[in-house]
Design a protein around this nucleic acid. Structure first.
Lengths: 193, 193
DNA sequence: TATCTTTGCTAACGAACGTTAGGTTTTAGA
DNA sequence: TCTAAAACCTAACGTTCGTTAGCAAAGATA
């Protein structure tokens, strides 16, 4: 799971993810974090500069994962429908494989400092553009219905990004199946064909 | 908008919604709230018992709105597809007409106290069951595809509940059109028919 | 074994937190 | 106009916050 680690810094990140997910970034104190790890609060500062550093690590680390998963798909020569399907599956796999980080990512990114916040928003726009270009391509080829492009992408993200709220590893289906189901639902609708 | 009020208590709720939405419940202090209203922090306690009271008002108030919108639709004799479409539109209208409250509702409900939290979770289950029964009905009539029922409902809620993240009154379409678009997308899929 | 770096500790800093006590001003009804 | 309630104030309470200073222990390198 998300409990393996090599060094203290990674350990801090792991535990922080769990606590931030459970109680929220603001409601989690450095004393909570230190206590959960089993060290004194001041000792944290041998490994990190500030509380916000941890949040940055989590948010930008996961952003990187999302890009790494989506980029090769977008650069490929598959059809728009196949691209979209695979991009959805890849996105959902990143989420389900990093549930703690995802929860923090979607919930607490706004508590990043001014500069990080700006960077985060830029990355998010860039990432959304990846999906938007697939959708645009599909509309041009008349494979996707021609509705407001931004709106379609937002609905796709809506359906994908809520996953962390309910997905429970073990009790649910595995992440690839979940991803394919969401993709199916979005592409074909819930109506019988 | 959400800026009209009658008495101080409602005024406090309105301003609190805005601040909670912008900065989060935990990161918003009673001093912030009082300052925004234009009174001293201690004066708040002539109208409310505690900070959490405000959160309760917001969360359970909106929960009530959701039920009021969905119940008559579920009790009607329309087809499952029509029921679902209308329930989706109604749900999204509640969100877009209460953007501040919705953001707090979806974001900060977990900061409710133990007892309220339990009550909240129960209400949420009940509300989900309303949609689940429509979906079940639709599957039984072979109007909806037979996939995991819980999963289908979760995807529907995913698509609906993210609306508050991006909807901007004025710049976007009006709430009924948005709702119908989401319903369309979910029911028919994004593929051309 | 001696030296340097990493990791952790105790103690404490100033600031901010939610909330209360107790008094004053404003408002509304008789 | 008098009175009681509602609204708001100043001041402060005990607590918790993120973080720092300064020092000790542990581990790695020579």
């Amino acid at each position: 799971m998300e409990t393996t680690y090599i060094n203290r810094k990674d350990h801090i990140k792991q535990v922080a993810q769990q606590l931030f997910r459970k109680n929220g970034y603001t409601a989690t104190s450095m004393r909570n974090l230190a206590g959960e790890i089993g060290i004194e609060p001041a000792s944290l500062y041998s490994h990190i500069k500030a509380k916000e550093d941890i949040l940055q690590q989590i948010c930008f680390g996961l952003a990187n994962d999302f890009f790494s998963a989506a980029n090769p798909i977008c650069d490929s020569l598959m059809s728009p429908e196949e691209k979209l399907r695979r991009a959805i599956v890849a996105h959902i796999q990143v989420i389900t494989n990093n549930l703690d980080a995802s929860a923090v990512f979607f919930h607490d990114w706004r508590h990043l400092g001014t500069e990080s916040l700006k960077k985060f928003r830029t990355l998010r726009s860039e990432y959304e553009e990846l999906f938007r270009s697939i959708v645009r391509e599909g509309m041009a080829e008349c494979v996707f219905r021609k509705v407001n492009e931004k709106f379609m992408v937002l609905t796709i993200f809506s359906a994908m990004n809520w996953t962390y709220e309910w997905y429970q590893p073990g009790t649910n289906l595995n992440s690839e199946v979940i991803g394919n189901n969401v993709a199916d639902m979005l592409i074909n609708g819930l109506k019988t064909i």
